[in-house]
Design a protein around this nucleic acid. Structure first.
Lengths: 228, 228
DNA sequence: CCTGTGATGACAGTTCAGTGACAGTTTGAT
DNA sequence: ATCAAACTGTCACTGAACTGTCATCACAGG
């Protein structure tokens, strides 16, 4: 699930350039040159970020921005304003209206990409690698939450730490001793077999009927989290 | 309780200019010209945003940025990089390192103010006017008033501060120590379990029969305010 | 068919958060 | 100044969740 960006720009050449660059970076891109249509498109399917030209048809960019900010559903979508108007006044007005960034033409596409990325990093931690992802399993260390396929799961403290330990080291076989050291701490004198038990508890917690088991048992070696 | 900004800038004149401007806008400002000291100051008391010069003594700005991003406690503080280096490469590097914005000298103080404001607006939780919003709970810091689903609730002083602390940091697990530091102040020698009691009082105050409890207990970690 | 290793269910002990009570303190009204 | 109501921090207790271990079962590999 790639982050999606809506490009609102009526200069067709520039619009294509941006779309192409964004696609190359792995974003899902939609675009329009019309302010009115932009609002409809956002309402239809909210993008993760918007690049918005100041001077567009129908509705001026700054008005689009205002509209988006007014509606609770769309108020938090990051917006980069794009414009030829380099005057300080305009920039400040854009930012005060709710734009998150303001880039003046001519601009470097790569810098714009970096700015979009920075914005997404902030507004969608899930996409920015703040969260650990493994297949359909998602672990958010900040909120101490684990989801599979979007559904929230309940894990005890030890299972949580264990899952995190695995997800930070995917596709590697981890010995019971390594797991003990990593999860319980170097100086624990816990029986190695105890790891087995917690593996079972972890499996029970994350596997719903039908789901493949992401934890592979490696006989005489340990366990590994991998795509089977 | 004004938002606080840390200015890291070794050009004293510029540093003063920024500090003055920020103070005039109502920010609490601290400043230093030294990268090493900046890190200490942040750890001591985390500011709401940081203005960071690229070229400073001891530790280069970009390194300070990296350090801050590495530590979970400080990873989410908005950073504006400030620099004389206008090259595209530098800008991109700054943004990729974790800076949220990148402003090139010479710059307009007012624009910088607007950018800071935009960043804070984003890093803050949902606002409705000046009120904090979380689901159907609404907290007005100025009038010290809390509503749920429109209905006014009564909270004691401590519960109010606690709720605010949570609503300013939604979707994060907060340890009892963090809560003590944030609500009671850094230098209180209050028993951690006291937090439990106030959590209970807060819950009792905000939850009417049928409402979902917005405060989630995270065993062995703390509490978190989030959906579900 | 053995053997060794992992899986499983049960269990007792431990930890941890929720709860009601309470005494001391603060606050605000009179 | 006085008093009642509201608020605060602590405690003891309880029940639920969690943990580590063990005995036993299942099974893959030789």
């Amino acid at each position: 699930m790639n982050p999606s960006v809506l490009v609102v720009e009526d200069d067709v050449a520039l619009c294509d350039l941006l779309s192409w660059n964004l696609s190359a970076e792995g974003y899902d891109v939609r675009s329009t040159g019309d302010g009115e249509e932009a609002l409809v498109m956002v309402r239809e399917q909210a993008p993760d970020a918007i690049i918005l030209d100041w001077m567009i048809e129908q509705v001026p960019g700054i008005e689009v921005c205002r509209q988006l900010r007014k509606d609770k559903e769309t108020a938090r979508i990051p917006i980069v304003m794009l414009t030829a108007r380099g005057e300080e006044e305009d920039r400040i007005r854009g930012l005060k209206t709710g734009a998150d960034d303001y880039v003046t033409k001519p601009f470097s596409p790569r810098e714009l990409m970096a700015r979009i990325e920075a914005l997404l990093r902030r507004s969608r931690p899930v996409l920015a690698g703040d969260n650990l992802l493994f297949g359909d399993i998602e672990l958010d260390p900040t909120s101490h939450r684990v989801r599979r396929d979007g559904e929230s799961l309940h894990l005890g403290p030890t299972e949580f730490k264990m899952l995190r330990y695995f997800m930070e080291r995917p596709n590697r076989v981890l010995s019971r001793q390594q797991i003990l050291d990593g999860v319980w701490g170097m100086d624990s004198d816990i029986d190695e077999r105890t790891v087995d038990v917690h593996i079972r508890r972890l499996r029970k917690a994350i596997n719903r009927a039908g789901d493949p088991d992401p934890i592979r048992t490696v006989r005489a070696a340990g366990y590994s989290m991998d795509a089977n």
